[in-house]
């Protein structure tokens, strides 16, 4: 049992986060395998982002542990951790005047020694990361001039330049139009196909169902269900957590869940 779990790329055990006496996440346990996309879904304020931040190590936890390939992250040096786990925040900031290529090259930081400058190898890895994230043509653009979708790709490329085994993303599709949302999700699938484990917070249940191998449904800080999308995103769960104005249909061809609002009985 333990040996089987130890082979998981990411394993979160009984994680609890409390801030000022409020429980934001309680006893959350989940795991992500290499090449797998796990979606973290749930209503607003469920604690999805908090859980993601706790996994990445920037949010102090009260109880529980996070393991990467069996090793507790609290015992891994933060630079070492940054080589294995990369994060794309929801609204990451970059200074005015920074080019996309420069931003992506910053992703090499954990790999560089104290006095080391970025080598041609680092530049090549950064270019490769931009190519994988589909933003190579944005190389010489300023980050501040990018559209929402382009900006997301630039920060995903920065994360990929860390050469991580695990990628955490907080709502990478927020504020994007339907086409850009689908493109980002397609990109996540492509990255997972190369062996990267992906843990992604998604707001849109239909999008999560189409993108993720498994989804974890979080409500009020607790995991309600974890499993394949069609087992977790059910009429019962959705009605209970999102209210009666949302219903779950099935895709006529492959049966995956489609979550649609029912407004005025329609």
């Amino acid at each position: 049992m333990t040996t089987a779990l130890a082979t998981q790329l990411l394993e979160v055990r009984d994680l609890t986060v409390r801030i000022d006496g409020n429980t934001l996440v309680e006893d959350a346990s989940l795991h992500v395998a290499a090449g797998e996309v796990l979606g973290l879904v749930g209503p607003n304020g469920a604690g999805k982002s908090t859980l993601l931040r706790a996994v990445s190590g920037v949010q102090p936890t009260e109880a529980g542990s996070v393991h990467i390939e069996g090793a507790p992250t609290t015992e891994v040096d933060r630079r070492e951790l940054a080589k294995r786990l990369a994060v794309v925040q929801q609204l990451p900031e970059a200074p005015a005047g920074m080019l996309v290529s420069e931003l992506v090259l910053l992703g090499r930081h954990p790999h560089l020694g104290w006095f080391e400058r970025e080598s041609s190898r680092d530049a090549r890895i950064a270019r490769d990361a931009m190519a994988r994230a589909g933003c190579l043509e944005l190389e010489v653009r300023e980050v501040g001039t990018l559209s929402g979708g382009e900006r997301r790709r630039a920060f995903i490329a920065r994360a990929l330049a860390q050469e991580p085994e695990l990628l955490l993303l907080d709502e990478p599709t927020a504020n994007l139009d339907a086409g850009a949302q689908a493109e980002i999700c397609e990109l996540l699938r492509t990255l997972a196909a190369t062996g990267v484990g992906v843990l992604v917070v998604l707001h849109d249940l239909t999008l999560a169902a189409s993108t993720c191998d498994r989804v974890a449904l979080l409500a009020a800080g607790r995991l309600v269900a974890t499993g394949p999308p069609d087992e977790v995103i059910t009429t019962e769960h959705v009605a209970r957590l999102y209210g009666p104005t949302v219903s779950v249909l099935r895709h006529p061809e492959d049966g995956r869940p489609l979550v649609v609002p029912t407004i005025g009985g329609r």
Binding site: G57, R78, E80, K83, H109
Partner: peptide, 8 residues
Amino acid sequence: EQAAQLGV
């Protein structure tokens, strides 16, 4: 937060 996640 990004800096911390990059190992700083």
